[in-house]
Design a protein around this nucleic acid. Structure first.
Lengths: 229, 229
DNA sequence: GTGACTTTGTGCCTGCGTTCACAAGTGACT
DNA sequence: AGTCACTTGTGAACGCAGGCACAAAGTCAC
């Protein structure tokens, strides 16, 4: 039952102050705004909040978790704040990623440049299909999933990305965990069962569309609509 | 700011009670479990909850929003419950999707079979690159973004998916809205400004990785982190 | 029909995240 | 030096979602 984070009551006491998951997500957003699109110098919480599209009080509370004190009457020093957020998020480090499943989605992710630039180079590609093993995708040779452990350890992989069909996802996840990966991003639908100390995040494309469809259908309820009801 | 709160007197009141966003997401999950992997007949909330990986009380509360009454002492009729959830989510209808940006990610999404099977056929592909317009991707001809309005209306598109670089995202979103699209799924990082009646969901791949990196980096610091400064 | 058993539906409590509002600190200006 | 305008940091209130526990309601056996 290790869904995103908070399924672990009582055991997380080792950090300075527990930073809420929602705050971490927003911090990453602030970091992006700060990194690109803000002049050097100082910035007030109101300004930054406007850029990021959030309430300024929320922003200040978020930043208060960092211990990063701005100066009252002036605002936050952009350089200092950037460094502070990076330090807190661990964004100054590089996290090699292993991507499993070199299908449509997997290839696209491998070819997407936005990851390496943000400290997440895709260092390992894995698949079980003999036709794919040994081929090169986006400049990286595809390895056999059976060799996951050696390859991942050799490249100091810390994060695994699952882009396989649902049927293979659980098995792949187990392999990754056995290979020492403790953070997994799962694109396959369905539920993964993992040890509690493995951090899991899920991206379910069909679910997102279904959420939109729900609102769409609620909208159309008043007008007569060509539905198969 | 399209807040999900319900302090909105002018709500379209076709549904009995406002359904929380979190509940809608879980309902989609229940639907998947029900559709594949559950024997016909009846199922108790405990069983279904175990399959879906949630608390059984939460499941019952979720289902109570449907007005779908199970029978006490027995459980829920699988067929009835499935139909009920589908009706509520609008999952019985088909929602044609327009996908903008036929790059790495866009092509992958177009080729991903998981959408059409769930009622979200990708009916329109759009791009601004003349080299791509007119070509065929996953069996669909790429149209010029300039013709978005006509093409989308012709195909009765209700949902738009943005898979362009960040720099083009806002502009594309505006075009989609002008073309009558009122639900958007955005893969581009950054913030989109949209009319209040347009439903927006965001998938930020880099953000997900950064969340994992945060936990990863905290793990490494578990030595002894007393109050700094 | 009756009683025992099973499972739903929900009232209540708890805890978290968001928002408000304001005291406290800072720099500029006179 | 003193005042003033400005902005941070946070205590407190609020609202929402999650979980517990139990009464209501229905079934099954006899």
């Amino acid at each position: 039952m290790a869904v995103t984070g908070h399924a672990d009551p009582g055991r997380r006491g080792s950090s300075i102050r527990a930073i809420p998951e929602a705050t971490v997500a927003r911090l990453a957003g602030y970091l992006r705004v700060l990194s690109a699109g803000v002049p050097d110098g100082t910035i007030s919480s109101d300004e930054l909040a406007a850029f990021a599209g959030v309430n300024s009080a929320k922003l200040r509370k978020d930043l208060s978790y960092l211990g990063s004190h701005g100066t009252r009457g002036v605002g936050y020093d952009v350089a200092t704040l950037t460094a502070e957020i990076e330090r807190t998020l661990g964004a100054h480090a590089v996290y090699p990623v292993a991507l499993v499943g070199v299908g449509h989605l997997g290839s696209a992710l491998a070819g997407y440049g936005g990851f390496a630039g943000r400290g997440f180079p895709i260092s390992v590609l894995l698949d079980s299909d003999p036709a794919k093993i040994g081929t090169s995708v986006a400049g990286i040779v595809v390895s056999d999933i059976a060799e996951a452990a050696e390859v991942c350890r050799a490249r100091a992989v810390t994060i695994g990305v699952i882009a396989t069909p649902e049927s293979a996802a659980q098995q792949v996840a187990d392999v990754l965990v056995a290979a020492g990966v403790r953070s997994i991003l799962n694109f396959a639908p369905g539920r993964l069962v993992l040890p509690d100390d493995v951090e899991l995040r899920r991206i379910d494309l069909a679910l997102e569309l279904q959420m939109l469809a729900f609102h769409e259908s609620r909208r159309g309820r008043s007008a007569a609509r060509l539905e198969a009801l």
